[in-house]
Design a protein around this nucleic acid. Structure first.
Lengths: 345, 345
DNA sequence: CCCCGCTTTTACAACGTTGCCTTCGTTTAT
DNA sequence: ATAAACGAAGGCAACGTTGTAAAAGCGGGG
């Protein structure tokens, strides 16, 4: 097996046919007799022919790449949440013969200055955007009229693949209710984030189903803060300071839950005996926490896979397709409750 | 600004010159009069001309991509060590107009079955390999004669960018010595890994400098295990079981150190009072540990940057270059000790 | 025997660059 | 004054693939 490239021309000569025929066979197009098809395939295999991407792309007027964009702080945070989503997209990309170009954008995105290179150079056929990103960036994407799919985030006019945040939250809270809890707090942050808003909504609905409404005193939120461990510690303090302490808390994500747990344990409270905790995302460290954390598992690779699959669909031209509106074209991926020590008596 | 592509032809017509001239100007090649150069640049800017990658690549007989390979378990572990390295390579790639294709390979790599797609399709001009990977993979890479650079790993015949493991370890142990410790343990795993072997060597040298030799009883190693938190917990147990306990331990990495710390604290020992701990890598959770961990900071982005820079050098053809031998062409990146509570009295 | 429709195959022009070679002026050396 | 040298710009053939339009082959019916 030689290391040098072999061109379609050589395959054609070896098979005794024209270049066009080779192309037709290799792409399963047009009508080619079975005999010729076999001869071509044979020759291609023997010569170890692999079409040159640049040539094919040039001819097909496409790039063969899709971009994967996420905020740098999301990519580098200690929990490989988006990393798994990326791997899911990568896996699906193989099936469609696409390459994924991963790039991060800064938290405080400014158009132009921070525009990903592959957008400037127009060397992607489509775009995946993971997690919350700045509106400035989304505006830019919309203006480019490039097929794009959001993952784990929502925005007007763009299709999205999202977690069933509301359903997951409902199941989590219903679990706490089944464990006999009456006073269940909600711990949250950044209400702008649709996922968090939906999780809060799930909490409300679960309470509603047993005929209760939300007690504002038990809804502890730092609306402007990111949902991090540090914010969780802060909210843990506020939880401790409450006059009438709840017996359980549903946290909008695991980072918050772990922060709360840390504060509680440091202040001598027991989990779950004094306060039961449930998180969301089922990150790696959830299972390894001092008290293993009950959480809602999210199928991250699947999110990526579905997003890529949908993007590919959008990338194949179809003039009859209409633009998206919010709420439409939302692919919702189910999640599942994982019960651990932090919530069972 | 139109969204449709504009070709070099249109720029040429707008500037009133030939296509060749436009190409020369845009690539800073050949001799072009200042007047024409300005006119071309002007026209290109006005039309928003961006060369089409596929066309350029086809013409230049290159792909414009480099591959970044690492083991899946390295990529998805909770510490974004390799993620930062990747970001470093990405940053440097921009300066050279290259795209980085990131892909993971499984832990138990088998040639063919697991060969990264971009290698099969030969659509990278060079390869970066981060962290320890299977020899089978390295053999395949060597056989391809594709320019490649290892990062944070070493192997015969391939250039590598590595951490100053030995120097860092030495500084860490010397710090413990300065703190008055006499009995200092070494906690390690996977001795096959060059980094760990070098860190052990640094430990030995630091002791040697004050006229001591390694006490075998204090060198706790799980030679076959991965250097993970779980292994650290295990070694923590062995540390506790020692007849004469050391007063300090230098751990081959932070994961091990955090595992040891967890075990020590759970068994009622105090850090650093009973046993001082120092790790290596300065991962995010080091600073957030129950007792903030002294560690050796590694400049991860820099590792990536240097590797990419070196790879680019290797990618530009130069017939006079000779193959690499182990030990040669090793780029060593310095690191620095970060002192925290886990090691100061 | 020729023409007609059908299937299979081929030739050829893109696609947008780059690199080499030529051409055309202009200056400099002889 | 003429030849040589030089600098600037242009023409053209790759690069490897695809898609299209046209050609070739092939029976069968008139």
């Amino acid at each position: 097996m030689s290391t040098s490239r072999c061109t379609i021309r050589e395959v054609a000569r070896a098979a005794g046919v024209s270049i066009s025929t080779v192309s037709l066979v290799l792409n399963n197009k047009g009508k080619v007799s079975e005999a010729t098809r076999r001869r071509v395939l044979q020759a291609a295999r023997e010569l170890g022919y692999v079409p040159l991407r640049a040539a094919r792309d040039l001819s097909m007027q496409r790039t063969g790449n899709v971009g994967f964009v996420l905020r740098e702080d999301h990519f580098t945070r200690s929990e490989p949440f988006y990393t798994y989503i990326f791997l899911g997209t990568e896996f699906e990309a193989r099936l469609h013969n696409l390459y994924v170009l991963l790039t991060t954008i800064p938290d405080d995105y400014h158009k132009g200055e921070h525009t990903p290179r592959f957008l400037r150079e127009r060397s992607v056929d489509g775009l995946l955007i993971a997690g919350k990103v700045s509106d400035a960036f989304l505006d830019e994407v919309r203006a480019m009229k490039l097929p794009a799919v959001l993952i784990d985030y929502e925005a007007e006019g763009l299709p999205a693949v999202v977690i069933d945040n509301q359903g997951g939250a409902r199941v989590a809270v219903e679990h706490l209710i089944r464990q006999g809890h009456q006073r269940i707090a909600f711990i949250g942050a950044d209400l702008q984030h649709p996922s968090i808003a939906h999780r809060l909504e799930g909490y409300r609905i679960a309470l509603g189903r047993i005929g209760r409404s939300m007690d504002p005193a038990l809804v502890l939120i730092e609306p402007e803060a990111e949902p991090t461990r540090a914010t969780g510690q802060l909210l843990g303090q506020r939880l401790l300071a409450l006059a009438e302490r709840p017996t359980a808390a549903f946290c909008a994500n695991d980072a918050l839950a772990l922060g709360v747990m840390e504060t509680l344990l440091q202040n001598g409270l027991r989990v779950p005996d004094d306060i039961a905790l449930v998180g969301f995302d089922d990150v790696q460290s959830a299972a390894q926490a001092p008290v293993p954390l009950t959480s809602v598992r999210v199928f991250k690779e699947q999110l990526g896979e579905l997003a890529m699959r949908h993007l590919v669909e959008r990338m194949t031209p179809d003039p009859a397709r209409r633009p998206y509106a919010r709420g439409q074209h939302m692919i919702v991926v189910p999640c599942e409750l994982v019960v651990r020590a932090s919530s069972i008596r």
